[in-house]
Simulated assay, not measured.
Amino acid sequence: MLGAINGLFVAGLAHLAIGGIAFLLIMLAEVIVLFIRLASLRQVRSVRARGEVPQIDTPISLSILWCSLQGLLFFFAMRTGNTAIMVITAAHCMGLVGPLCARNYAAPRLALLLVGLCVLPFVLGAASTGEPLMLALIALLPGFVLGVLQLMGHYRGAMLAALSAELSNAERARRDPLTGLLNRHGLEGVIQSVSRNQVFSIVCLDLDRFKPINDRFGHAAGDQLLCEVTNRMKAALTEGQVLARIGGDEFLALLPGLGPEETQTTIGAMIAGVSGPPYAVDGESLVHIGVTAGFACFPEDGCGFTELHVMADRALYAAKKAGKGFGARYEASIAA
């Protein structure tokens, strides 16, 4: 926007100083392109607000057209021979280079094209005056192009580093640092992506006999045990099924596409895996551990993640009281 305003300002000054119709036509064309660009920008924002991916062919074409108009303005302004106009034009031209590189760092060839459309006509216009000092601009052009490439490389490196750090921080915020599983926050994000027309089950799992082992052998052994248990439970799941650790020895599983019977089968596989071969702790001792589960199904048992989680947790509590080591589905009789 500021670049467009500056372009109109330079064209207006050139017209006032020199007269003629050329700068008036350039101003008219810039105003038309500006309004089209604003309308295109509003459309892109509207598409993004709907969560869709906008088409960028039109914005790119308009950017190329606008830079071509700027180049035309620079060419004629430098040919005026008016020192004040030439200085203002040079300042405007150089002022465009940084923003063009910064906004298009992800597309270096496009950025170089846009910069070239502005700078080359400026250089040619200055050189066509025949002034020796203006001719020197041609000799400076290769160094300028190299500087532009370095500037784009700097912007690209800085932005990619920032995006990488942001993605890394976001991933750490949704992951359990010990097991690498999703945490509660991460699982809620996955839940939101599940289609409301698809059946799914929420399973709460709690390890049996873990606390005495953790107290006896220490937290380091307990952490190792949790990691091994995680691997066994994950081995019982298939693609698209998600396991999360929500704290201590408590886990939560999301099983998309599974009804009550299939969920019970999957829970049985997880329990068998966890309670199978003994675990080695402190280098020599072997221990056994089990897991109890409670689950609730959508849409039969509830309509939302929070509601289903509460139901699955109540089913887990009832299974613990009933003897542990098995999976129980939520029933209305255990709601109280």
Score class of each variant (00 low, 15 high):
Leu2Ile: 09
Ile5Arg: 09
Ile5Asn: 04
Asn6Ser: 03
Ala11Phe: 08
Leu16Tyr: 09
Leu16Trp: 14
Ile21Lys: 11
Ile32Lys: 03
Val33Pro: 01
Phe35Ser: 04
Ala39Gly: 09
Ser46His: 11
Ala49Asp: 11
Gln55Val: 02
Thr58Asp: 04
Pro59Lys: 05
Ser61Tyr: 05
Ser63Lys: 13
Ser63Asn: 08
Ser63Thr: 09
Ser68Gln: 03
Gln70Ser: 00
Phe75Asp: 12
Phe76Thr: 06
Phe76Asp: 09
Arg79Leu: 12
Thr80Met: 07
Asn82His: 15
Thr83Cys: 13
Val87Lys: 00
Ile88Met: 15
Tyr105Ser: 05
Ala107Ile: 07
Ala107Gly: 13
Val119Cys: 11
Phe122Cys: 06
Ser128Trp: 00
Thr129Gln: 13
Gly130Val: 08
Glu131Arg: 11
Glu131Met: 02
Ala136Met: 10
Leu137Gln: 12
Leu137Asn: 14
Ala139Gln: 03
Gly143Lys: 02
Leu151Lys: 11
Met152Ser: 02
Gly153Phe: 06
Gly157Asn: 15
Ala162Gln: 09
Glu166Trp: 01
Leu167His: 08
Ser168Ala: 14
Ser168Glu: 05
Arg175Cys: 14
Asp176Lys: 02
Gly189His: 08
Gly189Leu: 14
Val190Lys: 10
Ser195Thr: 10
Ser195Trp: 01
Asn197Tyr: 15
Gln198Lys: 15
Phe200Glu: 01
Ile202Ser: 05
Val203Gly: 04
Cys204Val: 08
Cys204His: 03
Leu205Lys: 02
Phe210Gln: 08
Phe210Glu: 00
Pro212Gly: 02
Arg216Met: 13
Cys227His: 15
Asn231Ala: 13
Met233Glu: 03
Leu237Cys: 01
Glu239Pro: 01
Gly240Lys: 05
Gly240Ala: 07
Gln241Cys: 05
Val242Ala: 08
Ala244Phe: 07
Ala244Thr: 12
Gly247Ile: 02
Glu250Thr: 13
Thr263Lys: 14
Thr266Lys: 07
Gly268Ile: 12
Gly268Ser: 07
Ile271Phe: 00
Ser275Phe: 11
Gly276Phe: 12
Pro277Trp: 13
Asp282Ala: 11
Gly283Thr: 13
Gly283Arg: 12
Glu284Thr: 15
Val287Lys: 09
Val287Phe: 00
His288Ile: 05
Ile289Arg: 04
Thr292Ile: 15
Ala293Asn: 11
Ala293Ser: 08
Phe298Gln: 00
Cys303Phe: 07
Thr306Glu: 14
Leu308Cys: 05
His309Gln: 10
Met311Tyr: 06
Met311Cys: 00
Arg314Asn: 11
Ala315Ile: 15
Ala315Ser: 15
Tyr317Pro: 06
Phe326Gly: 07
Arg329Phe: 14
Ala332Pro: 04
Ser333Leu: 06
